[in-house]
Amino acid sequence: MTEASTINYEATKKPCKVCFVTIGATASFDKLLKAVLDDPFLEALRRAEYTELLIQYGKEEGKAIYESFISREHDNVKRTCGINIAGFDFNTNGLGEQMRKAKGHPGNGSKEGLVISHAGSGTILDALRVGVPLVVVPNTELLHNHQVELAEELAKQEYVVHGSLNDLAASISEAEKLRERKRQWPPPNSGDESYKRGLAGVMDDEMGWVD
């Protein structure tokens, strides 16, 4: 037990580093919840010096999985990994606050963390705008598997890490590499003259307005 208490002591000195996990509002995603509450994943978080795991777990099944894990394991995880786990079902005002928490703030000594998200486009965009490293995990049980295409394309362009439910722990170290590359959203060519002034240009054409 002496070893465990030493880890705990170190944990209090570590700067705050948040991993925020969101499963989205429209569908349950039990596999993602189970993957982030799994030992190898928590161990990977510890190695990358995370101090907080914040989970948006959704209604019903998600809530049940989260709450039963917390009642069984929370103290244990805190002791062995030095990680605080907190969660909520959903926030109707959006996830901006949690994204910014994961982004960290040099002013209060917190470090930039990570967002792990289902492949919903709104959530992906929010994280890209905040500029926090993002791991996208498509929900393979949903019929709309074009979500996988979006995750693959964004990963190919090095904006996100395409996470796999089978080995989510590996995504933690990939996200550290992503952090170093610092690709900025939106792409530099958006709103470029070469794109005919984007939507505003199309609207002007249709209305017959000439600037």
Partner: peptide, 9 residues
């Protein structure tokens, strides 16, 4: 279908 750049930014 026309591509006029990413419209979400």
């Amino acid at each position: 279908a026309e591509f006029v750049g990413a419209l979400v930014a």
